[in-house]
Design a protein around this nucleic acid. Sequence first.
DNA 1: CATTCTGTTGAATAAACATTCACTTATGGA
DNA 2: TCCATAAGTGAATGTTTATTCAACAGAATG
Lengths: 145, 145
Amino acid sequence: MSKSYRHGQILRIIRSKSVHTQDELARCLKTIGLATTQVTLSRDVRELGLVKTPEGYREITHEETGPAFRLLAAEFLHDIRAASNLVVLKTAPGHANSVAVALDNEEWKEVVGTIAGDDTILVIAPDEKTAAHLCKRFHKLLEGR
Amino acid sequence: MSKSYRHGQILRIIRSKSVHTQDELARCLKTIGLATTQVTLSRDVRELGLVKTPEGYREITHEETGPAFRLLAAEFLHDIRAASNLVVLKTAPGHANSVAVALDNEEWKEVVGTIAGDDTILVIAPDEKTAAHLCKRFHKLLEGR
DNA sequence: CATTCTGTTGAATAAACATTCACTTATGGA
DNA sequence: TCCATAAGTGAATGTTTATTCAACAGAATG
């Protein structure tokens, strides 16, 4: 009954048939012996990066982050922190600028602009909520590096 | 204040910034002088084929229907009707079989199977709701042919 | 062991979204 | 003109999804 097993089953199900609601997905899982609730599935949907389309839930080709920023971040990005509508990124000394430039080039809609010092980048988001989302996105970028 | 103008503005907005809710979208439209409600936007989102992603609303590359079925349908498909969990397609006499074969090859998840006669195809959907959805999808296919 | 921390989950609830119904407006015949 | 029909809309309401909060389990630490 592990979470990752459930995730796998969810993917298998939505690949094989149209599932239009999370409750429906819960019923599908039940038929293979996995008892869950809509609450859990709401989280699973987010974690798996699924989106709801008129044809049912689908995996979305995760708009890939360009390699430049990804590589630089993997190498030099040390800390990520949200502060109101800002995200503060800490880098290795002297590398803030190059990382910020790479990030600018990504042209993420969530990023209004960046300011780079020596080892700190201030990423300006339009609002607090977006900043929090950005934060997660940065963390995700570093997973498993 | 036409609907199609609003649709255009909606696309422009979601291409340029992250919009996470329909209420937020309504506020964006208001700033350019378009007063709408969430109700209307719910319909617009569906009509424009947008999906909600963690990064905001997005146009989804409409999983293209293969050309074979599309072309055959444009040429020979005459009527579309839902009946319980079935969709009954009427074609030009003698063409039901070829259209059905092309449809089978599409491997739509909503289609359990098809049975073709001379000028009639029975499309079997898993349930009534899916049949209704299929119906719309067929109709959409024929728009503007 | 106790304790703290982290991750997972469900119940209750809030938020977001979709649908129904009634109304308006425009259009196109009789 | 008058009626019928169709398209578009919003208010109210129903459905679906997300979040909050509390509980619990297991791992790490004193």
